[in-house]
Design a binder for these strands. Structure first.
Length: 933
DNA sequence: GTACTCACG
DNA sequence: GACGTACGTGAGTACG
């Protein structure tokens, strides 16, 4: 056939619309052999096939193309930064399917077109206009109303789902105006889906009325003063600019710079081999059979995967690891090849190599990428030249490396591209490294967090553990490259020829783990946990950690000196009392002094044969003797000095003057965070002397610290989960929960209650959360065991739901091997069916986990929502201490911050879980952390 | 590297 | 009936 013209018929398929329809119409199917999400691709292919089958008769197209969007940034974002800003992020399991839909289109031998920086709609507009001008027909297969402006003069739309053609009349029906005025109506009415503002209070009906009265938008805006309705008149005058902007946004670009012509889109016969190969690769059994029949060829055989082999754990394992096959990327050309492959794939595993485990001090040394198991590369950037055994080394850069800035400049668009998923193992680390190099990595997946959502309680989630367990592969040990202990070198001193294998392997392992875990999230029903409680927390924590908290060195230093003096005095006294000098800090030596030399009673040896000298033991002895009392004082000071006033000073970052902790998201089995290097979740507060350390945690000038903490969150959650009416009522009424418990248990009025009674009730309340036992309570309260047991019995009598909760939870754990939080987090309890004392531990942990874990989930949700809630305020979130969040905020914005943050925290369980008890948050503020409490 | 001790929720 | 027990963490020190 010759050039496109009269008698020709062009079909333009809106590819993105097909994909989203396919995705939402189908359940989350996965490829059986490896779990790759495939539902949308399957639906897409079915739709294409149905489309092709329907193309018979006189109306059949002579030319056809599927048009896709490309790039998230278009000229519309340039003129209006909020364009499509309210769009939800693409679902994670859809992302990897996008490139596959391109491949599918090509497999059907249908032209597949896209243009960087343009929406599919603009390409469709350009082609439709060209077809019309050439005198041919054009059918746009889409139901997107934005395309209706193109209808007319031989251009029509077809809603493939409803099989309904939309012509000029159809457009008039929808918009009340002809196609040539559709943009005018859209400009006025706006569009919440694309976030087009339009004119407030004016919808399609009113807009059409106005346009029909005045002829077109420009005339309308010119003569807006003539409108009779005062409100409408004012709106059009006030918002004229916004309306003109809206028109620019909805107006399709009919002159996109295409690198092809309509003639290139001529209908082609499908290539049976190519198409069936693709369908077999996707493992589409039904469809490949149907298409084979239609093409009159032999249906291909798709091997049925053995159910055991369907375990995705086994699939990636099959391919051996070959470190020698990894690639050392030396220059821009080499890197470009990898970037192209990433765009083809839609995802990439990324890993960074640096000079330190501390992200705030680490310098970037190299980057690894992996797009397919076994195919990984390492881009060395700042490896040094010097021999590693040379004491001084050389600071000259080694050969065969890209310039750091050049590599980052090339990778930044990829790492920040909304449509490219970046996969990492502990992405918070890499995200911080990249952030410090000006790259905001997103979106991300994290294999460490996937493992945590799937396997909490079974094992830790480090790469070595995961690789050995799920890939049966022992990774190259880092020690083999950098050595151990004091003689260890930094990674930039490792020879690139050794480094690239190790580094690339990490990316390879990460990608294989991702392929293993991704489908399991659905299978084990923890996708929601991963998506709502794990993944979104990564950037929030990264920000908090990078913000750090200001710590005043002088305050700490003065305290250290004071503690040292006191300790010296105590030490002299202790030696005096002992009649000899010894190391007070050695429990072994102390035990021997106390129990052997002095002959005190109650010496108990532990499994290593040493006497126990814990605080509880010394406290008992202290009632009769001076020495243990002094040791207790000495120990307290020693702890404060070594762990806090000395150590914290070493953690002050020289660049920021602040202390930057690191939170491990997957450290605690229950969902709690853990803080390390330094641990800022155990800064003293219970004793006056210790509490003063918090005075060193300060706000910048003009700012204050604000502490917001949940009041009794675990007890409230217990009241809800175990469904205890009396407790729920007490929380509803804002009562003193421990006094209420005491009152119920001992039949005493709350007014004028003996503090001792309340203290006992408090201990029981906490004991319940920990999986109470008579022994434990007795020890805690220092009362006879029988008495403690009597308390517990009374407690269960008054609150029978507690016993029910404990029994049900234990039973559930024994049956399923895990327990769950209210938000669906699973905590595995592998030892629940063990025998002996282990069983007791496991049982109490199982009872505690849903309560502690639900509280952890609640504050996670609050933290995830916090950045949006305090956006625009001169405030930042600094620390989390399990039930408390610490903020630094400008003095004049304290009230705004408190009301915003408190709101988020108190409503954090909504809408996923409706708690029967209110969550309340107490607020405090001050120049330092001690005052903020 | 392990045990002990103690700081926090 | 005996056994051994509060839940979850991280860090510093002694010691083999």
């Amino acid at each position: 056939m010759g050039n496109f013209g009269k008698g020709c018929h062009l079909h333009l398929i809106d590819g993105s619309a097909f994909i989203f329809r396919a995705y939402h119409a189908l359940p989350p199917l996965t490829r059986k052999s490896d779990g790759l999400p495939i539902g949308a691709v399957s639906g897409f292919c079915n739709m294409l096939q149905r489309y092709v089958e329907g193309n018979t008769g006189p109306d059949a197209p002579t030319h056809v193309a599927v048009i896709f969007d490309k790039g998230s940034h278009t000229f519309r974002n340039e003129i209006y930064d909020q364009y499509k800003a309210n769009r939800e992020a693409m679902p994670e399991d859809l992302r990897p399917q996008i490139p596959l839909t391109r491949t599918a289109t090509e497999a059907f031998n249908i032209a597949c077109k896209e243009l960087e920086g343009y929406e599919a709609d603009d390409i469709i507009a350009t082609l439709a206009v060209q077809a019309r001008d050439a005198g041919g027909r054009c059918t746009i297969i889409s139901s997107d109303k934005d395309l209706m402006q193109l209808v007319g003069g031989g251009v029509e739309m077809l809603d493939a789902m409803k099989n309904k053609r939309i012509d000029v009349e159809g457009v008039e029906e929808k918009f009340g105006v002809g196609p040539n005025r559709v943009v005018d109506v859209q400009a006025l009415a706006g569009d919440s889906v694309d976030n087009i503002p339009g004119a407030p209070g004016i919808g399609v009906k009113t807009a059409a009325l106005l346009i029909n009265e005045y002829g077109d938008l420009d005339t309308l805006l010119e003569r807006a003063g003539e409108i009779k309705q005062p409100k409408r008149r004012q709106t059009l005058i006030d918002f004229a600019d916004q309306i003109r902007l809206s028109k620019q946004l909805v107006q399709l670009d009919e002159n996109t710079p295409l690198d092809f012509t309509i003639d290139d889109l001529e209908v082609r016969e499908p290539d049976a081999d190519k198409l069936l190969d693709f369908l077999v690769e996707m493992e589409f059994r039904t469809l490949s059979k149907r298409i084979a029949t239609a093409l009159d060829v032999e249906p291909p055989v798709i091997a049925d995967v053995d159910p055991a082999g369907a375990n995705p754990v086994d699939a990636p394992e099959a391919l051996p690891f070959k470190p020698d096959d990894y690639e050392w990327v030396r220059d821009a050309a080499g890197l470009q090849v990898w970037i192209d492959r990433i765009y083809e794939r839609g995802y990439v595993a990324v890993d960074t190599e640096t000079t330190s485990l501390n992200e705030m001090l680490a310098d970037l040394v190299g980057i690894s990428l992996c797009v397919e198991p076994g195919q990984a590369c390492y881009i060395p950037l700042t490896h040094k030249d010097g021999a590693s055994d040379d004491l001084f080394g050389s600071d000259a850069l080694a050969e065969g490396q890209m310039d750091l800035d050049e590599a980052l400049k090339m990778l930044k668009p990829v790492l920040e591209d909304d449509s490219i998923l970046k996969i990492g193992q502990n992405m918070k680390y890499d995200q911080k490294i990249f952030a410090r190099n000006g790259v905001a990595v997103a979106p991300i997946d994290d294999t460490l967090l996937m493992s945590y959502a799937l396997n909490a309680g079974l094992h830790n989630h480090g790469m070595d553990t995961l690789s050995e367990r799920y890939l049966s592969h022992v990774p190259i040990p880092i020690k083999s490259l950098i050595g151990t202990g004091k003689s260890a070198i930094t990674f930039d001193r490792v020879k690139i020829n050794d480094a690239f294998k190790y580094a690339a392997e990490d990316a390879d392992i990460t990608l294989r783990l991702w392929k293993t875990f991704k489908p399991q999230l659905h299978q084990k029903q923890v996708t929601t946990v991963y998506e709502t409680l794990e993944r979104p927390l990564v950037p929030v924590l990264a920000q908090m950690e990078m913000a750090g908290v200001k710590v005043d060195r002088d305050t700490l230093s003065r305290m250290s000196n004071a503690f040292a003096q006191k300790m010296a005095g105590l030490e002299a006294e202790i030696h005096e009392l002992a009649g000899q000098t010894f190391n007070v800090g050695s429990p072994k030596q102390l035990g021997e002094i106390l129990f052997d030399k002095m002959g005190l009673e109650g010496g108990k040896k532990g499994k290593t044969g040493a006497y126990a000298t814990g605080a509880d033991v010394l406290e008992d002895l202290a009632t009769e003797h001076e020495l243990p009392a002094r040791v207790l004082d000495w120990r307290q000071l020693s702890k404060l000095k070594s762990t806090y006033t000395d150590a914290l000073q070493d953690h002050i970052n020289p660049d920021t003057g602040r202390v930057h902790t690191s939170y491990s998201i997957a450290g605690a089995n229950t969902g709690r965070l853990a803080s390390t290097d330094p641990n800022l979740q155990n800064i003293p507060i219970r004793t006056e002397e210790g509490r003063r350390i918090r005075e060193a945690f300060v706000a910048e000038p003009g700012n204050v610290l604000v502490a917001l903490d949940y009041s009794q969150i675990e007890l409230r959650i217990l009241a809800h989960i175990a469904d205890i009416p009396a407790l729920k009522q007490a929380f509803d009424e804002g009562q003193d929960i421990h006094a209420m418990t005491a009152s119920q248990m001992f039949n005493v009025p709350i007014e004028g209650m003996d503090p001792m009674i309340r203290r006992q009730a408090k201990a029981i309340n906490f004991g319940v959360i920990y999986g109470i036992s008579g022994f434990g309570l007795a020890r805690n309260l220092r009362i006879p065991r029988a008495e403690a047991q009597a308390f517990i019995d009374t407690y269960f009598e008054r609150f029978p739901g507690i016993r029910g909760y404990m029994d049900d939870t234990t039973k559930f754990a024994k049956e399923h091997g895990y327990v769950q939080t209210l938000f669906g987090r699973k905590i595995n309890t592998p030892e629940i069916n063990a025998k002996g004392p282990t069983a007791g531990f496991a049982k109490r942990a199982a009872i505690n986990a849903p309560i502690q874990g639900t509280a952890a989930d609640v504050i996670r949700r609050a933290m995830i929502r916090m950045p949006a809630a305090i956006e625009g305020l001169p405030a930042r979130m600094l620390l989390q201490v399990h039930d408390e969040l610490l903020f630094e905020v400008a003095e004049d914005a304290v009230d705004d911050l408190v009301s915003a943050a408190k709101g988020v925290m108190e409503n954090a369980s909504d809408p996923a879980v409706k708690l029967d008890v209110p969550l309340t948050v107490d607020a405090g503020q001050g120049a330092n952390w001690a005052e903020a409490h």
